[in-house]
C-alpha cells in the first residue's frame, strides 16, 4: 500500500516570553528578552496509508492541533520532514490545498449568508472540479444524507449539526486524497453524531479518502477508527490498532448488574453504599483481584474484572449468593476507559 502521509522526527518549538506577575511585571515584560522554548511537538514520526482512518487522540494541550496545523501546512515544523502526497505542506500551500480537505468542528468554512448549494458551486469552480465529477459526488452525497433539506438553506440559519454536515460535504467535494476532521461531532446530539459518523464512513469507503480524525469523543473512535495514535506532552504514546491496546491492559471485562426493579429500590444512596460494600467483599473473597473496581452508572453497578486475576463467573456467582440480580450484562472494556488509563500514565 502506498504511504500517503509520512512524518519523520518532526518537532515544533515555540518561543514564549517568560511572563512576570502583576502590573509591574507586565511593564517589565515590555522590555524583556527572557524567552523560554516550549516543545509543543517532540520528535514524532508516523506513516499513514491511503484510505486509512486514523484517530488522533490526546488530552488538551498535548500537541494535537500543532501536529494538524503542520500537516495542513499552516505551521512549519522546527525540524523533521513532513511529506504528504509527495509534497511538503507548508511549501506552496495553494497547490497542496488542492488535495486536502479540512473541517474544524465549530468553525464553518462556508459562506455565512449563502445557501450551502451556492457555496458548493463556488467551491466547484475554485477547485476546478469537472462537471461530471461534481455530479457524481453530489449523487453520492444525496445517497447518504437528505440533501434537499440541507442545501437550500442559508448557512446562518442552519443548526450546528446541519452546518457540520455541510462542512464535511464541502471538504469532500473536490475529492481530496486526505481530509482532516477536527472534532467533527463536538456539541451535537446523539442522532446527529451517528449520522455524521455514517457519512464519514461512507465517504471513506467510496472514495478511499485518507482521514485524520481528532476527537475527544470515543464514540467517534469506536465507530470509525481501527488505528489510533495517542499523543501527550508532544510525544506519541501509542500508535497501533485499537484492539491491541485493550489487550495491553490485561483481560479486562465489565460485568454490569442491576439489583432492583423500581427506581425506589435503585435510589442513588443505596447504590453508592452497595458499590462500596461489594468492592470490599469481593476483594476479601478474591485477594488476588487487586485491580477489580466497582462503580455505578445510572442504575447499574459496574464491576471491572481482570480475568487473569479472577474468573468472571466466580464473581457473578458470588454476587448472586448475596443479592437478587434482576438483570446482567457483560461488556468489553470500553475505549473510553482504555484511553483514560493511557492518559493517566498506564503505559509507563
Amino acid at each position: 500500500m502506498e504511504k500517503i502521509i509520512s512524518l519523520k522526527n518532526v518537532s515544533k518549538e515555540f518561543k514564549v516570553l517568560n511572563r512576570r506577575e502583576g502590573l509591574r511585571g507586565s511593564f517589565m515584560d515590555l522590555f524583556s528578552r527572557d524567552y523560554k522554548i516550549i516543545n509543543a511537538v517532540n520528535n514524532i514520526s508516523m506513516e499513514i496509508e491511503q484510505g486509512e482512518i486514523v484517530g488522533y487522540l490526546g488530552p488538551n494541550g498535548a500537541g494535537k492541533s500543532t501536529t494538524i496545523k503542520m500537516m495542513t501546512g499552516v505551521l512549519e515544523p522546527t525540524s523533521g520532514d513532513i511529506i504528504i502526497d509527495g509534497r511538503i505542506p507548508y511549501k506552496d500551500r495553494n497547490k497542496y490545498a488542492q488535495n486536502i480537505g479540512v473541517v474544524f468542528g465549530q468553525r464553518t468554512q462556508l459562506w455565512w449568508a449563502l445557501p450551502a448549494i451556492e457555496s458548493f458551486k463556488i467551491l466547484k469552480d475554485m477547485y476546478q472540479v469537472k462537471d461530471k465529477d461534481y455530479k457524481d459526488m453530489m449523487d453520492l452525497f444525496s445517497s447518504t444524507v437528505d440533501l434537499d433539506k440541507l442545501l437550500h438553506k442559508p448557512v446562518r440559519q442552519m443548526s450546528l449539526g446541519q452546518r457540520t454536515l455541510s462542512d464535511i460535504l464541502a471538504a469532500f467535494l473536490h475529492n481530496p486524497k486526505i481530509v482532516f476532521l477536527d472534532e467533527p461531532t463536538i456539541g451535537l446530539d446523539v442522532a446527529m453524531k451517528s449520522k455524521i459518523r455514517e457519512l464519514i464512513k461512507t465517504l471513506n469507503k467510496e472514495k478511499n479518502t485518507t482521514i485524520i480524525l481528532t476527537t475527544h469523543d470515543m464514540g467517534d473512535v469506536d465507530a470509525l477508527c481501527r488505528r489510533i495514535v495517542i499523543i501527550d506532552k508532544g510525544t506519541i504514546l501509542y500508535d497501533n490498532d485499537i484492539e491491541k491496546i485493550k489487550s495491553i491492559f490485561g483481560n479486562y471485562r465489565t460485568l454490569k448488574v442491576r439489583l432492583g426493579k423500581t427506581s425506589e429500590e435503585l435510589n442513588e444512596e443505596a447504590i453508592k453504599k452497595e458499590v462500596e460494600d461489594m468492592e470490599l467483599k469481593l476483594k476479601e473473597v478474591y485477594p488476588k483481584a487487586q485491580t477489580l473496581h466497582v462503580s455505578d452508572v445510572d442504575e447499574w453497578i459496574n464491576i471491572l474484572v481482570n480475568e487473569d486475576e479472577v474468573e468472571m463467573i466466580d464473581v457473578l456467582n458470588f454476587i448472586q449468593r448475596q443479592r437478587k440480580i434482576y438483570d446482567v450484562r457483560l461488556e468489553e472494556i470500553s475505549t473510553e476507559s482504555v484511553i483514560r488509563k493511557i492518559y493517566e500514565g498506564g503505559l509507563e
Binding site: 501546512g73 499552516v74 500551500r93 495553494n94 486536502i100 474544524f104 468553525r107 468554512q109
Partner: peptide, 11 residues
Amino acid sequence: GDFIKYCFRPI
C-alpha cells in the same frame, strides 16, 4: 482564529 479557514484554499 477564524482566519485559519482562508489558509486551506487552493487560491
